[in-house]
Protein backbone atom coordinates (compact mmCIF):
# COMPACT_ATOMS: atom_id res chain seq x y z
CA UNK A 1 0.00 0.00 0.00
CA UNK A 2 2.85 2.35 0.89
CA UNK A 3 4.55 1.74 -2.47
CA UNK A 4 1.31 2.35 -4.35
CA UNK A 5 0.71 5.61 -2.47
CA UNK A 6 4.29 6.63 -3.11
CA UNK A 7 4.05 6.14 -6.87
CA UNK A 8 0.68 7.89 -6.89
CA UNK A 9 2.28 10.84 -5.06
CA UNK A 10 5.10 11.04 -7.63
CA UNK A 11 2.62 10.95 -10.51
CA UNK A 12 0.33 13.51 -8.94
CA UNK A 13 3.26 15.76 -8.15
CA UNK A 14 4.30 15.89 -11.80
CA UNK A 15 0.91 15.65 -13.43
CA UNK A 16 0.77 19.20 -14.74
CA UNK A 17 4.31 19.24 -16.11
CA UNK A 18 3.83 15.77 -17.56
CA UNK A 19 0.61 16.76 -19.34
CA UNK A 20 2.55 19.57 -21.00
CA UNK A 21 5.35 17.15 -21.91
CA UNK A 22 2.88 14.74 -23.48
CA UNK A 23 1.37 17.58 -25.48
CA UNK A 24 4.85 18.41 -26.78
CA UNK A 25 5.39 14.78 -27.77
CA UNK A 26 2.02 14.79 -29.52
CA UNK A 27 3.00 17.87 -31.56
CA UNK A 28 6.35 16.32 -32.44
CA UNK A 29 4.55 13.18 -33.58
CA UNK A 30 2.35 15.29 -35.89
CA UNK A 31 5.42 17.13 -37.17
CA UNK A 32 7.29 13.86 -37.85
CA UNK A 33 4.26 12.37 -39.58
CA UNK A 34 4.02 15.42 -41.83
CA UNK A 35 7.68 14.88 -42.76
CA UNK A 36 7.04 11.23 -43.51
CA UNK A 37 3.99 12.00 -45.62
CA UNK A 38 5.81 14.69 -47.59
CA UNK A 39 8.73 12.31 -48.13
CA UNK A 40 6.44 9.50 -49.27
CA UNK A 41 4.56 11.74 -51.71
CA UNK A 42 7.82 13.18 -53.05
CA UNK A 43 9.15 9.67 -53.68
CA UNK A 44 6.25 9.03 -56.05
CA UNK A 45 6.09 12.54 -57.49
CA UNK A 46 5.41 12.19 -61.20
CA UNK A 47 2.05 13.84 -61.82
CA UNK A 48 1.12 17.50 -61.90
CA UNK A 49 -1.22 17.88 -58.97
CA UNK A 50 -0.56 17.08 -55.35
CA UNK A 51 -3.76 15.00 -55.22
CA UNK A 52 -2.59 12.83 -58.12
CA UNK A 53 0.80 12.32 -56.48
CA UNK A 54 -0.85 11.29 -53.22
CA UNK A 55 -2.83 8.78 -55.25
CA UNK A 56 0.42 7.51 -56.81
CA UNK A 57 1.89 7.04 -53.35
CA UNK A 58 -1.20 5.15 -52.19
CA UNK A 59 -1.15 2.95 -55.28
CA UNK A 60 2.48 2.09 -54.58
CA UNK A 61 1.34 0.61 -51.28
CA UNK A 62 3.29 2.74 -48.80
CA UNK A 63 2.38 1.15 -45.46
CA UNK A 64 2.37 1.76 -41.73
CA UNK A 65 5.62 -0.22 -41.53
CA UNK A 66 7.24 2.28 -43.92
CA UNK A 67 6.01 5.13 -41.78
CA UNK A 68 7.39 3.54 -38.61
CA UNK A 69 10.71 2.93 -40.34
CA UNK A 70 10.73 6.60 -41.25
CA UNK A 71 10.18 7.52 -37.60
CA UNK A 72 12.32 4.96 -35.77
CA UNK A 73 14.69 3.77 -38.49
CA UNK A 74 17.55 6.07 -37.63
CA UNK A 75 20.52 5.75 -39.97
CA UNK A 76 22.97 3.17 -41.19
CA UNK A 77 26.36 3.91 -39.62
CA UNK A 78 29.03 5.94 -41.39
CA UNK A 79 31.98 3.65 -42.08
CA UNK A 80 34.29 6.07 -43.74
CA UNK A 81 34.65 9.02 -41.39
CA UNK A 82 36.73 10.93 -43.93
CA UNK A 83 33.47 11.35 -45.87
CA UNK A 84 31.55 12.64 -42.88
CA UNK A 85 31.51 16.16 -44.32
CA UNK A 86 29.57 14.83 -47.31
CA UNK A 87 26.69 13.74 -45.06
CA UNK A 88 23.59 15.89 -45.41
CA UNK A 89 21.75 17.08 -42.29
CA UNK A 90 18.67 15.07 -43.33
CA UNK A 91 20.78 11.91 -43.33
CA UNK A 92 20.98 12.12 -39.54
CA UNK A 93 17.95 10.93 -37.58
CA UNK A 94 17.42 14.36 -36.03
CA UNK A 95 13.70 13.86 -35.35
CA UNK A 96 14.23 10.53 -33.62
CA UNK A 97 17.08 11.96 -31.54
CA UNK A 98 15.04 15.01 -30.55
CA UNK A 99 12.32 12.72 -29.21
CA UNK A 100 14.83 10.69 -27.17
CA UNK A 101 16.62 13.80 -25.90
CA UNK A 102 13.34 15.40 -24.90
CA UNK A 103 12.27 12.35 -22.92
CA UNK A 104 15.66 12.27 -21.20
CA UNK A 105 15.17 15.93 -20.37
CA UNK A 106 11.71 15.27 -18.90
CA UNK A 107 13.10 12.68 -16.50
CA UNK A 108 16.45 14.19 -15.64
CA UNK A 109 15.82 16.44 -12.67
CA UNK A 110 12.91 15.14 -10.63
CA UNK A 111 14.58 12.54 -8.40
CA UNK A 112 17.48 14.82 -7.53
CA UNK A 113 15.37 17.89 -6.83
CA UNK A 114 12.92 15.85 -4.80
CA UNK A 115 15.74 14.66 -2.55
CA UNK A 116 16.41 18.19 -1.40
CA UNK A 117 12.76 19.25 -1.32
CA UNK A 118 9.41 17.55 -0.80
CA UNK A 119 10.95 14.10 -0.99
CA UNK A 120 12.28 14.57 2.53
CA UNK A 121 8.69 14.63 3.83
CA UNK A 122 8.03 11.38 1.99
CA UNK A 123 11.20 9.73 3.29
CA UNK A 124 10.38 10.74 6.85
CA UNK A 125 7.05 8.95 6.43
CA UNK A 126 8.12 5.75 4.70
CA UNK A 127 11.42 5.35 6.61
CA UNK A 128 12.88 3.48 3.70
CA UNK A 129 15.31 4.87 1.14
CA UNK A 130 15.09 1.73 -1.06
CA UNK A 131 11.34 2.03 -1.42
CA UNK A 132 11.69 5.72 -2.26
CA UNK A 133 14.25 4.96 -4.99
CA UNK A 134 12.20 2.13 -6.47
CA UNK A 135 9.16 4.41 -6.60
CA UNK A 136 11.27 6.97 -8.49
CA UNK A 137 12.41 4.25 -10.93
CA UNK A 138 8.80 3.22 -11.53
CA UNK A 139 7.84 6.86 -12.02
CA UNK A 140 10.69 7.16 -14.53
CA UNK A 141 9.54 4.09 -16.46
CA UNK A 142 5.90 5.23 -16.49
CA UNK A 143 6.96 8.66 -17.76
CA UNK A 144 9.00 7.19 -20.64
CA UNK A 145 6.28 4.68 -21.46
CA UNK A 146 3.55 7.31 -21.53
CA UNK A 147 5.63 9.54 -23.82
CA UNK A 148 6.07 6.71 -26.32
CA UNK A 149 2.41 5.71 -25.96
CA UNK A 150 1.34 9.24 -26.92
CA UNK A 151 3.90 9.34 -29.74
CA UNK A 152 2.69 6.11 -31.32
CA UNK A 153 -0.99 6.68 -30.61
CA UNK A 154 -0.84 10.03 -32.39
CA UNK A 155 1.07 8.34 -35.20
CA UNK A 156 -1.57 5.60 -35.61
CA UNK A 157 -4.43 8.08 -35.59
CA UNK A 158 -2.71 10.16 -38.26
CA UNK A 159 -1.92 7.06 -40.32
CA UNK A 160 -5.59 6.05 -40.19
CA UNK A 161 -6.74 9.57 -41.06
CA UNK A 162 -4.40 9.73 -44.07
CA UNK A 163 -5.39 6.26 -45.30
CA UNK A 164 -1.98 4.66 -44.74
CA UNK A 165 -2.71 0.90 -44.79
CA UNK A 166 -1.84 -0.96 -41.58
CA UNK A 167 0.22 -3.55 -43.45
CA UNK A 168 3.75 -4.90 -42.98
CA UNK A 169 5.18 -4.52 -46.47
CA UNK A 170 8.31 -2.47 -47.10
CA UNK A 171 8.40 -0.05 -50.01
CA UNK A 172 11.69 -0.30 -51.93
CA UNK A 173 11.73 3.25 -53.23
CA UNK A 174 10.96 4.89 -49.93
CA UNK A 175 13.44 2.62 -48.14
CA UNK A 176 16.31 3.37 -50.50
CA UNK A 177 15.52 7.08 -50.27
CA UNK A 178 15.82 6.92 -46.50
CA UNK A 179 18.81 4.63 -46.02
CA UNK A 180 20.65 4.66 -49.38
CA UNK A 181 20.33 0.87 -49.57
CA UNK A 182 17.78 -1.61 -50.85
CA UNK A 183 15.79 -3.58 -48.29
CA UNK A 184 16.89 -7.19 -47.88
CA UNK A 185 13.43 -8.26 -46.73
CA UNK A 186 10.03 -7.44 -48.18
CA UNK A 187 8.03 -7.35 -44.96
CA UNK A 188 8.24 -7.69 -41.20
CA UNK A 189 5.98 -9.87 -39.09
CA UNK A 190 3.73 -8.42 -36.41
CA UNK A 191 5.95 -9.76 -33.61
CA UNK A 192 9.10 -8.35 -35.22
CA UNK A 193 7.41 -4.99 -35.75
CA UNK A 194 6.34 -4.87 -32.09
CA UNK A 195 9.90 -5.67 -30.98
CA UNK A 196 11.85 -3.22 -33.13
CA UNK A 197 9.39 -0.36 -33.50
CA UNK A 198 7.87 -0.27 -30.01
CA UNK A 199 9.48 -2.42 -27.34
CA UNK A 200 13.16 -1.73 -28.06
CA UNK A 201 12.82 2.06 -28.41
CA UNK A 202 10.83 2.19 -25.16
CA UNK A 203 13.27 -0.04 -23.28
CA UNK A 204 16.44 1.59 -24.61
CA UNK A 205 15.14 5.05 -23.76
CA UNK A 206 13.96 3.83 -20.38
CA UNK A 207 17.34 2.24 -19.61
CA UNK A 208 19.24 5.40 -20.53
CA UNK A 209 16.75 7.47 -18.57
CA UNK A 210 17.30 5.27 -15.50
CA UNK A 211 21.07 5.51 -15.95
CA UNK A 212 20.68 9.28 -16.15
CA UNK A 213 18.57 9.34 -12.97
CA UNK A 214 21.20 7.26 -11.16
CA UNK A 215 23.93 9.59 -12.42
CA UNK A 216 22.07 12.55 -10.89
CA UNK A 217 22.85 11.04 -7.48
CA UNK A 218 26.54 11.65 -8.24
CA UNK A 219 26.58 14.74 -10.45
CA UNK A 220 24.30 17.64 -11.26
CA UNK A 221 21.27 16.75 -13.40
CA UNK A 222 22.48 18.91 -16.27
CA UNK A 223 25.80 17.02 -16.39
CA UNK A 224 24.00 13.66 -16.23
CA UNK A 225 21.78 14.82 -19.10
CA UNK A 226 24.73 15.92 -21.24
CA UNK A 227 26.58 12.64 -20.57
CA UNK A 228 23.54 10.61 -21.62
CA UNK A 229 23.04 12.68 -24.78
CA UNK A 230 26.72 12.16 -25.69
CA UNK A 231 26.30 8.41 -25.10
CA UNK A 232 23.23 8.43 -27.32
CA UNK A 233 24.98 10.38 -30.06
CA UNK A 234 28.08 8.18 -29.87
CA UNK A 235 25.91 5.16 -30.64
CA UNK A 236 24.94 6.74 -33.95
CA UNK A 237 28.52 6.41 -35.14
CA UNK A 238 29.84 3.47 -33.13
CA UNK A 239 28.49 0.07 -34.11
CA UNK A 240 28.84 -1.73 -30.80
CA UNK A 241 26.26 -3.66 -28.78
CA UNK A 242 27.01 -1.66 -25.63
CA UNK A 243 25.72 1.49 -27.30
CA UNK A 244 21.97 1.20 -26.92
CA UNK A 245 21.34 3.64 -29.77
CA UNK A 246 22.08 0.74 -32.10
CA UNK A 247 19.00 -1.03 -30.71
CA UNK A 248 16.75 2.00 -30.67
CA UNK A 249 17.28 2.54 -34.42
CA UNK A 250 15.19 -0.14 -36.04
CA UNK A 251 17.21 -0.21 -39.29
CA UNK A 252 20.20 -1.64 -37.37
CA UNK A 253 18.18 -4.59 -36.13
CA UNK A 254 19.23 -8.02 -37.38
CA UNK A 255 15.73 -8.31 -38.85
CA UNK A 256 16.77 -5.97 -41.67
CA UNK A 257 19.96 -8.01 -42.16
CA UNK A 258 22.36 -5.05 -42.34
CA UNK A 259 23.76 -5.63 -38.84
CA UNK A 260 23.60 -8.32 -36.21
CA UNK A 261 21.90 -6.40 -33.45
CA UNK A 262 19.34 -8.99 -32.46
CA UNK A 263 16.30 -7.68 -30.55
CA UNK A 264 16.67 -10.39 -27.88
CA UNK A 265 20.23 -9.26 -27.03
CA UNK A 266 19.01 -5.65 -27.00
CA UNK A 267 16.24 -6.52 -24.57
CA UNK A 268 18.71 -8.40 -22.37
CA UNK A 269 21.20 -5.49 -22.28
CA UNK A 270 18.39 -3.03 -21.51
CA UNK A 271 17.07 -5.15 -18.65
CA UNK A 272 20.58 -5.64 -17.21
CA UNK A 273 21.31 -1.90 -17.39
CA UNK A 274 17.95 -1.07 -15.81
CA UNK A 275 18.59 -3.53 -12.99
CA UNK A 276 22.12 -2.21 -12.49
CA UNK A 277 20.87 1.38 -12.32
CA UNK A 278 18.28 0.43 -9.72
CA UNK A 279 20.82 -1.49 -7.59
CA UNK A 280 23.53 1.20 -7.82
CA UNK A 281 20.90 3.79 -6.89
CA UNK A 282 19.78 1.79 -3.87
CA UNK A 283 23.35 1.28 -2.63
CA UNK A 284 24.38 4.89 -3.18
CA UNK A 285 21.22 6.33 -1.67
CA UNK A 286 21.60 4.27 1.49
CA UNK A 287 24.97 5.96 2.10
CA UNK A 288 24.07 9.36 0.76
CA UNK A 289 23.64 12.47 2.89
CA UNK A 290 20.41 14.21 2.01
CA UNK A 291 21.26 17.88 2.05
CA UNK A 292 19.33 20.81 0.73
CA UNK A 293 20.65 22.90 -2.12
CA UNK A 294 22.32 25.47 0.12
CA UNK A 295 24.16 22.77 2.06
CA UNK A 296 25.44 21.04 -1.07
CA UNK A 297 28.24 23.57 -1.25
CA UNK A 298 29.93 21.47 1.42
CA UNK A 299 30.04 18.41 -0.81
CA UNK A 300 30.56 19.49 -4.40
CA UNK A 301 32.30 22.17 -6.33
CA UNK A 302 31.51 22.22 -10.04
CA UNK A 303 29.79 18.81 -10.06
Amino acid sequence: MKSYNLIRYDLQKNIRAHAFHLLMICFISVFCFAFFYADAVQTYWSARTFHENVQNMRNAGVSLTDSLLHLTGGMLPIHNFSNIADQRIEDYPIKWLVIQFLILYFTCEYARSDLSGGGVQILSRIHNRTLWWIAKCIWNFITVLSCFAVLFLTWFILAACFHIPFTSSIDNNLFSGMFYALPKISQVSGKQAFLIFFLLPVLTCSSISLIEMTLTLYVRPVIAYILCCIYYLAGMFLVHPLFLTNYSMSIRSSIFAFYRFTPAVGLGICLILMLLSIIIGIIHLSKMDLLDTTQMKYTRSWL
Binding site: G117, V120, H127
Partner: peptide, 17 residues
Amino acid sequence: GQNSFPENMGLLLENPA
Protein backbone atom coordinates in the same frame (compact mmCIF):
# COMPACT_ATOMS: atom_id res chain seq x y z
CA GLY B 1 21.93 2.55 6.43
CA GLN B 2 18.56 1.94 4.83
CA ASN B 3 16.60 2.44 8.03
CA SER B 4 18.15 5.68 9.12
CA PHE B 5 14.88 7.38 10.03
CA PRO B 6 13.29 7.62 13.46
CA GLU B 7 9.82 6.10 13.63
CA ASN B 8 6.84 8.44 13.87
CA MET B 9 8.55 11.74 13.20
CA GLY B 10 7.16 15.11 12.14
CA LEU B 11 9.54 17.37 10.30
CA LEU B 12 9.75 21.02 9.34
CA LEU B 13 12.97 21.91 7.61
CA GLU B 14 14.11 25.35 6.53
CA ASN B 15 12.22 25.44 3.25
CA PRO B 16 8.90 23.58 3.44
CA ALA B 17 8.35 22.18 -0.08
